[in-house]
């Protein structure tokens, strides 16, 4: 088994927190892991990507080859489009639908969504909306992760355990809220038809 994920977003959106949960779950399942992070200049509101690789045998490269990713998980719709060249022909895109507009020349959002809808396997999630409904806006990442979990070859229960570990020191209600957000996200993906 080998599973390659490109995580994308905008600096400050918490791309690394999603990566950490996937990483903890993979390592707890005794899988091998590589996860390339982005630090430094690009974090100031710029585009951010992280490569996460899990496998049941040694992994060599820290970077995923172009055309090699099984999953592109993005916290922002235009950022998802930026990295589609990394995707395998049958790779899946799971992305937040709400744009983060911090530049003047952001394209029309309808065109961004239309471009995304042309991909063979894509799940657009209104994670921000779901989190707002839950009165837990900080948990929108977990909604996205939940949606992605429908495709990731790690048991949902293991991912929930990882959420518990990562958010544990912030208290039980925080964990419960994030697990709930995760489950709602998963239900959305299971209801969608990304093939």
């Amino acid at each position: 088994m080998k599973y390659d994920v490109i995580l994308a977003g905008v600096g400050g959106q918490g791309v690394l927190s999603i990566a950490t949960i996937l990483a903890v779950a993979a390592v707890d399942a005794d899988l091998r892991l590589r996860q390339a992070e982005v630090h430094g200049m690009s974090q100031r509101g710029g585009e951010v990507q992280s490569h996460l690789r899990i496998a049941d045998r040694p992994i060599y490269s820290d970077l995923i080859p172009v055309g090699g990713a099984d999953l592109l998980l993005s916290m922002e719709p235009m950022e998802a489009l930026r990295y589609v060249s990394f995707l395998k022909p049958d790779g899946v895109i799971v992305t937040e639908r709400t744009p983060l507009i911090n530049i003047n020349n952001y394209p029309e959002i309808d065109r961004v969504i239309a471009a995304l809808e042309q991909f063979p396997r894509v799940v657009l999630v209104d994670a921000e909306g779901v989190a707002r409904e839950m009165r837990a806006t900080r948990s929108s990442n977990m909604v996205l992760l939940g949606a992605a979990s429908a495709f990731v070859p790690l048991p949902g229960a293991d991912l929930e355990a990882a959420i518990g570990k990562v958010f544990g020191r912030k208290g039980e209600s925080m964990v419960a809220q994030n697990v709930e957000a995760f489950r709602r996200g998963r239900a959305i993906a299971e209801g969608a038809h990304a093939g």
């Binding site: 100031r44 710029g46 235009m78 489009l81 952001y106």
Partner: peptide
């Protein structure tokens, strides 16, 4: 339609 998003 994808445009650059420089740090700021």
């Amino acid at each position: 339609i994808v445009v650059g998003r420089p740090p700021q």
